[in-house]
């Protein structure tokens, strides 16, 4: 099992990197703590920095079954936790009617009949009629599981209250049956885009992880891991451009997922380097608002000029040829 390898912060960083998820010490530390302290993790940060991805990768790395619950307005107990199948229960009652009269035959008094029925009543209040939903599944799973509660901020405050019992004690109370406890505590990841401040009660039960936009070096490593065909030079240029774009006052700041999309788009267009024309044509891959695109176009010359200056400073030429070679190698392998 992979669990043995997951026993220090460095090994987590390495394990995740093997799965092409490059992260800093902060993320690895929190993942480590989540496993050791058996506490849920609330992950916050701007859209597209890899919050959901982290949960998926950790699930793969720990060989856990990923159980995902997507939150939305109006999500309730019946869809998140469990549903009681009244109709099935009714149906069973109908079918078993005759067996019941057999059970009751020979009973002399009403009391005796009632007692006999009483002995059988666990048939009707059993897990047979319980349809498990993600939360219940995660708790009752007997193999290692990772529960991902995605975009928890989209859910209602009531739903949050429901989560409290699950997250603190890993147990669920079903009125018809009783309390169901987790056999094996699942790892829980909650993600939030911060469209709403979560309640303190929920936060107290979780470890907190804030994933921000990555630093330039980290982003280059991410890009190289995810889109190796891009080659060193294009990656570096692209990332520098993205970092500069994030400094502009945009309505929607482009994130890592946009960087990756952009790299793929440029590769599809066979662009070897970033020039004015290519950038202008592909800006709509990274910027999702007309106003943002216009603003970026206005700054384009400045953004590109910085890059050219860097190239002139000397290291550019050598880096270019080796990057191209590296890029070609990667393509051969693919």
């Amino acid at each position: 099992m992979g669990a043995g390898l997951f026993d220090s912060v460095e090994s987590i960083q390495k394990e995740l990197a093997d799965l092409d998820y490059i992260c800093d010490v902060n993320i690895a530390t929190v993942v480590f703590l989540a496993r050791r302290l058996e506490k849920p993790v609330l992950i916050e940060g701007p859209a597209g920095v890899g919050k959901t991805e982290l949960a998926k990768v950790v699930a793969t790395a720990t060989r856990s079954q990923l159980i995902r619950l997507q939150c939305y307005e109006g999500l309730d107990e019946a869809k998140a936790l469990y549903e009681w199948e009244y109709s099935k229960q009714l149906l069973y009652t109908q079918i078993l009617k005759e067996r019941f009269s057999e059970v009751m035959s020979g009973a002399k008094t009403v009391r005796e009949a009632a007692e006999r029925v009483g002995r059988e009543d666990s048939v009707f209040f059993s897990e047979n009629f319980l349809v498990p939903r993600p939360l219940m599944k995660a708790i009752t799973a007997d193999t290692p599981a990772l529960l991902l509660i995605d975009e928890v901020d989209k859910g209602d405050p009531e739903f949050e209250a429901l989560l409290l019992e699950v997250l603190s004690d890993f147990q669920v109370t079903v009125p018809e049956i009783g309390t169901i406890r987790a056999v094996k505590r699942p790892l829980v990841f909650l993600t939030s885009n911060n469209s709403r401040e979560m309640s303190d009660a929920l936060k107290r039960r979780c470890l907190h992880l804030f994933i921000d936009f990555p630093s330039e070096a980290l982003e280059i490593r991410i890009l190289e891991a995810k889109v190796p065909e891009a080659g060193k030079k294009l990656s570096a240029d692209l990332v520098r451009m993205m970092q500069a774009l994030r400094k502009l006052d945009l309505k929607k700041t482009p994130s890592i997922s946009e960087t990756l999309d952009w790299a793929r788009a440029l590769l599809a267009l066979n662009a070897e380097e970033l020039d004015r024309d290519v950038v202008r044509r592909t800006l709509n891959v990274i910027l999702k608002y007309e106003g943002d695109v216009r603003k970026a176009e206005g700054e384009l010359d400045k953004l590109l000029a910085e890059r050219v200056d860097d190239q002139r400073s000397g290291a550019g030429a050598a880096a270019t040829s080796s990057a191209q070679r590296a890029g070609k190698d990667a393509r051969h392998q693919a």
Partner: peptide, 11 residues
């Protein structure tokens, strides 16, 4: 990071 993750819950 350990202190931050356990004690600071607001971004």
């Amino acid at each position: 990071d350990a202190l931050g993750a356990t004690m600071v819950k607001r971004a």
